[in-house]
Nucleic acid binder design. Sequence first.
DNA 1: AGAATGATGTAATTTAACTACATTAGAATG
DNA 2: CATTCTAATGTAGTTAAATTACATCATTCT
Lengths: 284, 284
Amino acid sequence: MNTLEKIQKNLANFSKSERKVAEVILANPQTAIQSSIATLAKMADVSEPTVNRFCRRLDTKGFPDFKLHLAQSLANGTPYVSRHVEVNDSADAYSNKIFESSMAALDSARQSIDPQQINRAVDMLTQADQISFFGLGASAAVAHDALNKFFRFNVPVVCFDDVLMMRMSCINAREGAVVVLFSHTGRTKTLVDIARLAKENHAQVIAVTSKDSPLSKEATLAVTMDVPEDTDLYMPMASRLAQMVAVDVLATGFTLRRGPRFRENLKRVKEALKESRFEKPQPL
Amino acid sequence: MNTLEKIQKNLANFSKSERKVAEVILANPQTAIQSSIATLAKMADVSEPTVNRFCRRLDTKGFPDFKLHLAQSLANGTPYVSRHVEVNDSADAYSNKIFESSMAALDSARQSIDPQQINRAVDMLTQADQISFFGLGASAAVAHDALNKFFRFNVPVVCFDDVLMMRMSCINAREGAVVVLFSHTGRTKTLVDIARLAKENHAQVIAVTSKDSPLSKEATLAVTMDVPEDTDLYMPMASRLAQMVAVDVLATGFTLRRGPRFRENLKRVKEALKESRFEKPQPL
DNA sequence: AGAATGATGTAATTTAACTACATTAGAATG
DNA sequence: CATTCTAATGTAGTTAAATTACATCATTCT
């Protein structure tokens, strides 16, 4: 756990003098990590060993080690002890919290993603004659985004956020088709049906979803990630961000697999956009 | 800049012995921050003052200060020195790099966003009779996502990723309409035209884009963010992620502004989804 | 080849952190 | 209310770590 949060949480368990230390640190953590034990002791109006004991109580080896831990918890730019939005938060406060919790969610996704799954998914995608991206609700935006990315690769791609269209598209599927389904929970009944339908029509199914979900079991290959659930009502879903980054990862794997000539192609697509833009003023 | 990157970047500028130190640190940064200057010197097979000089060269006050900086750069879970994808990267490598650069981009956006702009945008949105979200290319997905979010608020919302539809919609605009435009560069000519058209028809225009761009100047209100540009071919646009989080921030501001009764409403919308899902197995 | 500059190491010094012990404050018991 | 015990805090001494000053070595340029 974040050291700063830990201090905040244990405030009640500290002794009188230790609490003084805690308060000085919470009030100005950035100063704390730059101070010596003597300075900090003076600021909190306690003795040096008290500061040292305080550090040990937080499961660190001593003062320098404590500073290291504190520095790490500050590094994430987390001046806010809690990442949960409160009713009376200022714009600055909730903006920071939302960005931070989004970043934390991405980190969690990063740690839980399995490179082998990525590799296999890239295999399937590079060999596909046709790729379809399906998503409902919030994941519809992800499917659109995937379309926008893979479209540049000059592969036949489609994208649907409508169940009927998905169904029809699956019925027409043939061998060589790959269907990519996005769903955070992996529990949406219609999507699981679609996965089954696609398989029945000889398409391969990649599910970008959460581990052990019905959808992940139905799919030919599941690319799974752990993303903290949005239990908090005010907290928007970080899952679609993680899914988008997963799309980026797959697209990157795709371009790497396709080799240098293919990448030349991409550059041209990018440059084709230039004409539709106002020129950027060149820095002097 | 991230200390670890800095070391990597300056490798050529270091002297022979300093490079030894750099390599030992790069090889195992986690060990480095837990070592004393003596241990590290021994590991790099150099003298202690050399390590000290190395630290100073990186603009730190000395060894302990250097460790602090290094700890901070490790905190973001950055085991990869470079965030740029290389041709021969493994799936694990490029996956991590992409997640990390996405997180870095969000952090940069977080730091550059202006809470006052957020506040004013929330003002405008809460008072709107009708909200339109427009985006082209990669930002189309963001517009869709915004629709999905604001749709729950029981406000008339539309979303277009087609220029003609945008135009028609603007022509029918009246006072009380708010148009939200998403564009990373803010230089897409057609979008700037749309902004002008919307204003001519008495709609208010919010642009989620980059600072000082043509679009930001044309808009009634610009919500601007600095997101590192995707100079690298393999590096996908992180801008759309930042835009999505910005949408989350605006949506959160919206719900907070609307008060508790409104939030009850949201809960009901969320619960309405339950029936379409497979039940989650309850943990024992 | 020799001087001069920059890099590196050695040893001494300073500073910071930690330990052991003494003192004090506060709680519990008669 | 006094007394004793325990926990908390501080003092002083010790150890370890980091830094400085200086000496030596390598390298480059004339």
